[in-house]
Nucleic acid binder design. Structure first.
Length: 863
RNA sequence: GCCGGUGUGGCGGAAUGGCAGACGCGGAGCACUCAAAAUGCUCUGUCCGAAAGGGCGUGUGGGUUCGAGUCCCACCACCGGUACCA
């Protein structure tokens, strides 16, 4: 039984014989040959898990941020395989986009060649990292066989009225010469190049994501607990639902009513003027109907607004500007004439582009009123007592309510016209006709009813979220599959003509000039009207690459399928993604768009779920010298070169051990040398095991067995809580304990030593798969440890028979006692009282209270 | 401004309301070695003390509790999101 393997006494001196390079080369070759991590097919009866890392963009080489993200992805994928799941863990590339095009412009390279050369480099890096992908499912969004289905998706949305064209002021990057989605404007600057964004009026394609605003918001509730709280919060804020009322105002001398949205319809009596966005059609119309002088002043103002950048526009402490249009709106509740101003603090694309101004109760309106000397009328007494929404009404001696009235002196103290501070808090209505005396909440309900009854208003919601602008005036993207006919109609490219493939870049001018480079491809542009056969033009724009990434997780289910975007049956089997892992930089854009498209596909009946990613893990960033790694800052550590010295396993272990997944990591703090030492120690433990695989575990050293089994029991919870750093720490403890057992305890032949080494190899596979495979082989097993089922912990080894109890006296620990785990309270207390240290600490004092919580704590109070 | 998060040794970080600092990095010392590397061992929050032992310690100030890094209140600092969104 205790037959031993021949001990290897010839281990070379360096690293105790551990050779990271030889090991990783060996196992990478074997994995490439055997392809062991391919997802199981239809005959596979195991439960399924879909694990996905946000796919990379193929710019340059990968950096340490990728090393971190994909290390975590691999931990999760390998974990679920050990836990008995059929795991799908694919990889692909988000390979359309600006950087390829910019590289093409700068270096004269074909964006295709640049892109696919980078992808090849990435693939090598991922192979060298030992990532356990299903390599049979690779996709690139720039392949026609992928973007053909982008075009399908576009036409699907078009048919359902969810893709439409409109002219509106858009965010324009003067450097990249292209429009940007709202989400791509950061601090008034272009997210990619940092140039100041300006507004420009253009006709563009939009996806009607606002139709889904309520569902996108409400469905976040079901993600609670499965997505990071932070991301849920960011999405909620981004969608920004405001609840209030629409109110219709007559405009003197104007043919139709103008509607405004307000979250405070209760303050309608306090409206003293009316403001329209200068860049709205309404402003132009109103100005056109005014005097020549006003028209001139308005034109000047509009021009100056157009010149200001988003940064200027967004600075909050900027003084208010505007022009009086010499027109009047009529307050529907009391018939008052309200002067109409055009001012750029009102946005054309939020609400209805016009507001009723209530300076007493809105800070912006107040600032404007004070700048232009407009009247301020208080209609909410914020000094009146309000508890919640219910006014506290005191009763007199006869039980009649006492009208608290209005305290004129305290009101004048807080008069906004004088203090410059708007009264936005709770209060009771005054100067408001039938609303007087009501709380804010009741007044909102009452006035909304009144307006609805009069047909001049209604309850309404407004969203911060805007429709998704998807046209881009760039070459390297999915061509929009639409045709512009001679007579001004728009028609989809007929399905039998899809995919609409990008023309050859040869001869095209990709330099940004404000119009799409595809417009220069005259042959490509020319097509025929599918209805009449007359000559027609293609749409020269390409799609935002966020369209590509909004549904790619479904394409992985059958990446080569030439007949459909994805098979519904496969989606029902694998999707939604169980575990989605990536950077927090996609907390809004990508995730919101993917959620939107998922809901659209659900509505069409192609999928049976409404949220694409069941759980989301956001890893932090890898920083160098305290700031985000980037090529432009010159503080980039490349993924491939980071592995050269320490080896892939050490990089992975060092990253996993560096701290919590969601925290940022300073690369300076990451110790690959510590990881290397640990891996060499682990390897040496396996190397030193001298027992045969068929030893009887039960005969092994009990203390070491307990440690092994406790880790087997704890690690799954820790992994599921993404506490990877703690799992590595626990592995280190086990390896250290095993080392000790070999050197100065049970010895290398003890079954517990073998058991510990085998458990170490199996769990280490999550972090250091090459070393783990090598250990597994040294221990006498066939590959692959990556496919080995998790070893079940022995429950009898998890219960301790003796524990350390703590004795506290007045909150201070005065003694620790070794006691049986099943000790009863009385006995524990008497042992505690008998302890010499306890008696010394208690000398001369009386115990007034004793709390005994067996077996951990005895707590004495002496006063 | 509004919303959210985080503050623990020299550093990265552990800690179901129950021994704060697991594990590692860095540092000091020792063993092995002619020597170095590698490996192994010991120590390493801080103050008083020769030691035994004790005081103080999780951003600050309060509170709840037999007991608080952990729960509650207020404040400070830093980080992130968002910002004329009516």
């Amino acid at each position: 039984m205790s037959q031993t393997l021949p001990p290897d006494t010839t281990a070379p001196a360096d690293g105790g014989g551990y050779d990271a390079y030889a090991i990783q080369e060996k196992w990478q070759t074997r994995w490439a040959d055997a392809d062991p991590f391919r997802a199981g097919g239809a005959d596979d009866k195991r439960p399924r898990k879909y694990v996905l890392g946000m796919f990379p963009y193929p710019s340059g080489d990968l950096h340490m941020g990728h090393a971190e993200s994909y290390a975590y992805v691999d931990v999760v994928a390998r974990f679920w395989r050990h836990r008995g799941y059929n795991v799908l863990n694919p990889i692909g590339w988000d390979s359309f986009g600006l950087p390829a095009e910019n590289a093409a412009i700068q270096r004269g390279a074909d964006p295709r060649e640049w892109t696919y050369a980078n992808i090849e480099q990435h693939k090598k890096s991922f192979r060298a990292y030992g990532s356990s992908y299903d390599w049979s499912r690779i996709l690139h969004t720039s392949d026609p066989e992928y973007y053909r289905w982008n075009q399908w998706l576009f036409q699907l949305l078009y048919e359902r009225g969810l893709a439409y064209r409109k002219e509106s002021p858009v965010n324009w990057c003067p450097n990249d010469q292209t429009v940007l989605a709202n989400e791509q404007v950061v601090d008034g600057r272009c997210e990619r190049c940092g140039a100041e964004v300006v507004k420009k009026k253009l006709t563009q394609w939009y996806f009607k994501i606002t139709d889904y605003a309520d569902r996108l918001l409400d469905d976040l509730n079901q993600l609670e607990g499965f997505w990071p709280q932070k991301v849920i919060r960011m999405q909620r804020n981004w969608i920004g639902r405001s609840v209030g009322a629409d109110i219709d105002f007559e405009i003197e001398g104007h043919h139709e009513k103008v509607t405004v949205f307000s979250t405070r319809p209760d303050t309608l009596y306090g409206a003293t003027f009316f403001v329209v966005a200068p860049d709205s059609d309404l402003a132009s119309e109103l100005a056109a109907g005014s005097s020549a002088e006003v028209r001139l002043r308005f034109q000047d103002y509009l021009a100056s607004v157009g010149r200001s950048s988003e940064i200027e526009r967004q600075s909050t402490d900027r003084p208010k500007t505007g022009v009086f249009l010499e027109r009047y709106a009529v307050n529907p509740i009391n018939g008052e004439r309200l002067p109409i101003w055009a001012a750029d603090y009102v946005l054309a694309d939020y609400g209805h582009g016009a507001v009723m101004a209530v300076p007493a109760h809105d800070q912006r309106d107040l600032d404007f009123a004070r700048a232009f000397d407009l009247p301020v009328r208080v209609v909410v007494d914020t000094t009146a007592p309000i508890t919640g929404a219910i006014p506290i009404i005191e009763l007199d001696e006869n039980g009649e309510p006492i009208d608290p009235g209005t305290d004129e002196s305290s009101l004048s103290e807080i008069d906004p016209a004088r203090t410059g501070i708007a009264l936005t808090g709770e209060g009771r209505m005054i100067n408001s006709g039938s609303l007087d005396g009501l709380s804010k909440r009741n007044a909102i309900a009452r006035i909304t009813e009144q307006l609805a009854a009069a047909g001049t208003g209604r309850a309404s919601k407004s969203y911060r979220l805007r429709d998704w602008l998807i046209s881009r005036q760039r070459f390297w993207g999915t061509p929009i599959p639409m045709i512009h006919t001679e007579d001004g109609r728009i028609a989809p490219v007929p399905v039998d003509q899809l995919p609409l493939i990008l023309p050859d870049v040869e001869g095209l001018d990709l330099t940004p000039k404000g119009t799409s480079p595809l417009g220069g491809a005259t042959e490509w542009m020319a097509t025929t009207d599918p209805d009449t056969g007359a000559p027609a033009l293609r749409d020269p724009d390409t799609m935002d690459t966020f369209v590509d990434s909004s549904w790619y997780f479904l394409r992985f289910l059958a990446p080569g399928d030439a007949t459909e975007a994805f098979p519904t049956a496969e989606a029902a089997k694998w999707a939604p993604v169980d575990s989605y892992i990536g950077g927090v930089e996609h907390a809004i854009l990508h995730l919101l768009y993917a959620r939107f498209i998922t809901k659209v596909l659900f509505d069409i009946g192609l999928i049976d779920f409404t949220e694409p990613f069941s759980t989301l893990v956001n890893q932090g960033m890898v920083l160098l010298a305290g700031s985000k790694m980037s090529k432009s800052k010159g503080n980039l550590i490349e993924f491939a070169s980071s592995m050269l010295d320490p080896g892939a396993d050490a990089v992975r272990v060092a990253i996993a051990f560096a701290g919590p997944v969601e925290d940022d990591i300073n690369w300076e703090d990451v110790s690959t040398t510590g990881a290397q030492k640990f891996l060499a120690r682990a390897w040496r433990v396996a190397h030193d095991v001298s027992s045969h695989p068929d030893v009887v575990w039960a005969e092994g050293d009990q203390a070491l067995r307990r440690l092994t089994h406790r880790l087997l029991a704890d690690a799954p919870n820790l992994v599921e809580q993404t506490k990877f750093n703690v799992v590595v720490a626990r592995l280190m403890e086990l390896v250290n304990a095993t080392r000790k057992a070999i050197d100065s305890g049970a010895g290398p032949a003890d079954p517990a030593v073998r058991e510990a080494a085998e458990a170490t190899a199996m769990i280490l596979d999550l972090f250091a798969p090459h070393t783990a495979e090598e250990m597994w082989e040294m221990l006498g097993y066939e590959p692959f440890v990556g496919l080995v089922p998790w070893r079940q912990p022995d429950a009898t080894l998890l219960v301790e028979d003796s524990v350390t109890a703590v004795v506290q006296i007045d909150g201070k620990v005065r003694a620790t006692l070794d006691v049986p785990a099943r000790i009863d309270p009385k006995e524990l207390e008497s042992i505690a009282r008998a302890d010499a240290r306890v008696q010394r600490a208690l000398a001369g004092r009386d115990v007034t209270r004793a709390i005994v919580r067996p077996p951990k704590v005895v707590s004495f109070s002496t006063h």
